[in-house]
Amino acid sequence: MRLSKHRRATIAEMDMTPMIDVVLLLIIFFMTVTQVSELNRERLELPRLAGAEDQKQTTMTINVDAAGQVLVSGHSMSVAQLLTLVSAELAKLGDDPQRMTVVLRADQRGDCRTVNQIVSALGQMQISRLRIAVQVPT
């Protein structure tokens, strides 16, 4: 007597290992290339120049848009307000202007009126180290 074969119900299983590998690789990639603290950088059209050195740690980043508006950490402010902020930063550094490095990110479409005002004011506060941010042409 032939017995009927009882086939076990086969469950189709997908091998998830390569997918998880790829997804984790992608996550590691995005985590490493994403700069979270981009708040102090406004979207500006910087002068397209080669520059002289790579960007370093700075005390303060001042953005000046094409219309001459001053922006620091996403907040629009006047030059007078900026100087108050600079004074506070300077106080944190023990009132030593030599320890203060300012990066000026100014839109290349604008004029130098606001930039000159900032430079004059910072110069009067004995802050002399200024870095002009440029965009490396591709």
Partner: peptide, 24 residues
């Protein structure tokens, strides 16, 4: 996490500096 990073990632152009001294 992948969707978050994919949507929030923005590739910024390389910036460099021109160091100068300020004089009044």
């Amino acid at each position: 996490l992948l969707i978050f990073f994919l949507t929030t990632a923005s590739f910024v152009p390389t910036e460099r500096d021109l160091e100068s001294t300020m004089r009044v």
